[in-house]
């Protein structure tokens, strides 16, 4: 296991009102290879805080996080090179505006690798590979990252992390603010990155359709506690998802309405539109 959370809690200091517990008593394991994990939960449930623990950006107030054999506890340990952990677990923030600063896309992507001591020429190669991986052509290399569209900025910020060649990739709401087509392309991108490299990818998202269609493991946070850890199939077969402040994917909602209101006996658990259509066909014309 590459990342192990053991009874991790994190409290943000509050003024006058006491501390605010963002996450409480979280215990979970994440493997280094081949996992495609969704981290879901309503706004303020602690998803981003949990993600920032994964590369030791913030330290737990209680408990420990073991990242590639290094144990991160509440106190800074001088024997641990935290920068190394941040290279192994790449974290992409929600808003690309928080990290893009160079005058060209190429330089901006090179910033990460060069911080880890990669020589300039090698970093340039890594930047080209990463840019190609996120589906932007070499024409983007010399462009100003601040003049790109929202989706392109997101891709460049992801490339900035990919260029560091992390073993695990964590993305904070990579699909927010994108149009439906952009979301699908982004998810296909992660799928292809996973197929090409075998890296574990953790994605924070609110979009249950994407979770159901693409992911093979879901972590549900509810008010700072880990309420569910399992496959999307298990999750969406639960009867009362509202108690976790989650919604069912569109396919399940439509098919259950079809089953209930039209009285058609159809298997409602279909992951995408094509599967849903063929399920209805099968039910209507056996």
């Amino acid at each position: 296991m590459a990342i192990r959370f053991r009874q991790v809690s994190y409290a943000y200091p509050g003024y006058g009102l006491g501390n605010y517990d963002a996450i409480k008593n979280i215990t979970l394991d994440i493997a280094a290879k081949g996992e495609f994990i969704a981290l879901v939960g309503q706004t303020g449930s602690g998803k981003s805080t949990l993600a920032q623990h994964m590369n030791a950006l913030i330290f737990p107030t209680e408990g420990t996080v073991e990242i590639f054999g290094k144990i991160v506890g509440p106190k800074r340990d001088r024997t641990i090179k935290y920068n190394e952990l941040r290279r192994k677990v790449g974290l992409v923030f929600q808003f690309p505006e928080y990290q893009l600063f160079e005058e060209t896309v190429e330089k901006d992507i090179m910033f990460g690798p060069m911080n880890f001591g990669v020589p300039e020429e090698a970093a340039r190669k890594m930047a080209w590979t990463a840019l190609d991986l996120v589906g932007l052509g070499p024409t983007y290399l010399k462009r100003n990252p601040l003049n790109l569209s929202g989706g392109e900025k997101k891709r460049v910020s992801i490339a900035g992390i990919l260029a560091m060649e992390p073993q695990i990739l964590v993305l904070d709401e990579p699909t927010s603010g994108l149009d439906p087509r952009g979301k699908a392309t982004m998810m296909d991108l992660f799928k292809s990155i996973r197929e090409a490299t075998g890296k574990t990818i953790v994605v924070i998202t609110h979009d249950m359709d994407l979770v159901y269609e693409y992911m093979d493991r879901v972590l549900v946070l509810d008010k700072g506690t880990l309420a569910f850890d399992g496959t999307p199939d298990e999750l969406f077969r639960k009867p009362n998802l509202e108690t976790l402040h989650l919604d069912y994917p569109a396919t399940i909602r439509v098919l259950s309405a079809v089953a209930k209101d039209l009285g058609i006996a159809v298997d409602i658990y279909q992951k995408d539109v094509a599967a849903a259509v063929s399920a209805i066909q099968k039910a209507v014309r056996p």
């Binding site: 920032q52 590369n55 950006l57 913030i58 935290y82 920068n83 941040r86 290279r87 790449g90 974290l91 923030f93 808003f95 928080y98 990290q99 910033f111 990460g112 911080n115 880890f116 900035g160 992390i161 560091m164």
Partner: peptide, 24 residues
Amino acid sequence: DEANKIMLAQASRGADFNEGKLVE
């Protein structure tokens, strides 16, 4: 708050604001 977020975002790209040489 924003500065803090930017610092975290750059720290996850390996910018260590505590250590490193002057040029870095």
